[in-house]
Design a protein around this nucleic acid. Structure first.
Lengths: 231, 231
DNA sequence: ATTACTATCTCACGAGTAC
DNA sequence: TGTACTCGTGAGATAGTAA
């Protein structure tokens, strides 16, 4: 744990940015105050405290004051930096769903087996899914919430089509992994007959068979998301 | 500039470390309090504030509370991270000396030209220095202070020797660059006849000639130091 | 112009506690 | 067990000002 006071982080960072690591850099407390968006008095206090804590050294030449960061100050910044770095890096980049299988593989087979869909599955997913979809009832609110997150992330888009009699809606596919074992795709249908608490999966394989699971079994689905969501 | 309150940084980092970026992670305020070395009440308040500022989302399932970091929260952490990163990276890794030339190249020539030294210069520096040393009177206290910094950094060591009559002290060499132009070495002598405010330089070339400077001229010397001083 | 003291204010924190 | 309120304390900020 860093012992550097949190309030001093930006001040020290500013001194680093000004090049004060190995050389004494002349600085005024009012300019420093502006940089850290605090008052001149606050900047002055920060310097006094940073010095008495051994994070910086100060040198006065008449009216001029120069500041240099000590090895201890540098080490402390690196410590905080690495704490943040590892927090951000450790962060897994997938959305997880947990629930129970609520249906056999038969339902949805009709729609998903239509040529208008299968042609696109073949070219965009690389395979024609096993006939039918696997429906999973999500266990908790948090997993229902997680579905919203997917909207913000890129999906493989299967376009809707018409066969002359009626139209069929689009299907969004999110490549996923079932029980850390079987590759599949979580699908979001433009027109679904399920409520929010159910997700549907397709796969090249028969998921129930591959995972040796049956209706009522606990199941975990992971959908990878981009590690860089914005910036 | 980050708008996230500094006090919340470690709390958010802890949530990241717990994997709360894309999934709701169950957490108690008392365990969170321990992690950030604050009280349960403080942790609770942090969560309330982080939520109302839009950095996290919370979900209650009865007694259980789960937390997820929002895109805004992630972006804010990345912002702070990059501020620290660039401060640390921008930091130049050299020690700078400024002063004026106070002597010709003749002095010191006798000692530095002795075979006991020149042989080592040749093998350890790669050249036999131009006869004599260039003496520079440092302009300010800060540069005299900077000499102390060098002690903590690795030098090329030229060992002392004896010619039977007397002994000659060691010489520490720090590769340096004069006026961003001429390669040289700042030397620290075991036995010097100069006071603290003077540094001595040797070079393959005649520095005054190469830099077209003379006694009284302003001169800048840079000595590179390792970018990673500790950890 | 500086730095940094004193006084004052705000708000972050922890204690106690309701739910 | 939990969370999160109120309240008292003190750290950290600013304003005013001395040197």
């Amino acid at each position: 744990m860093p012992e550097l006071k949190l309030q001093h982080i930006l001040t020290l960072a500013e001194l680093f940015a000004k090049g004060a690591r190995y050389n004494f850099i002349p600085i005024t407390t009012s300019s420093l105050g502006k940089s850290i968006r605090k008052s001149q008095q606050a900047a002055s206090k920060h310097l006094v405290e940073l010095e008495s804590d051994g994070y910086i050294e100060r040198l006065r030449s008449g009216t001029q004051v120069s500041v240099r960061i000590t090895t201890k100050g540098h080490a402390e910044m690196l410590k905080i930096f690495s704490v943040l770095k590892s927090s951000l890096e450790t962060s897994p980049s997938y959305v997880e769903f947990k629930g129970i299988i609520i249906s056999g593989m038969g339902e949805g087979a009709y729609y998903m087996s239509m040529k208008g869909y299968t042609k696109q599955f073949k070219s965009k997913l690389g395979y024609v899914p096993f006939p039918g979809t696997l429906n999973v009832k999500l266990r908790d609110k948090e997993f229902i919430e997680a579905k919203r997150l997917l909207d913000a992330h890129p999906a493989i888009m299967i376009n809707g089509f018409s066969d002359g009699k009626r139209t069929y809606g689009w299907v969004k596919c999110y490549p996923a992994r079932v029980n850390d074992n079987v590759d599949a795709a979580l699908i979001v249908l433009e027109r679904t007959h399920h409520d929010d608490s159910v997700i549907e999966l397709i796969s090249k394989e028969n998921i129930k068979k591959s995972t040796k699971l049956s209706t009522g079994s606990q199941i975990t689905i992971r959908v990878n998301v981009k590690p860089k969501p914005s910036e």
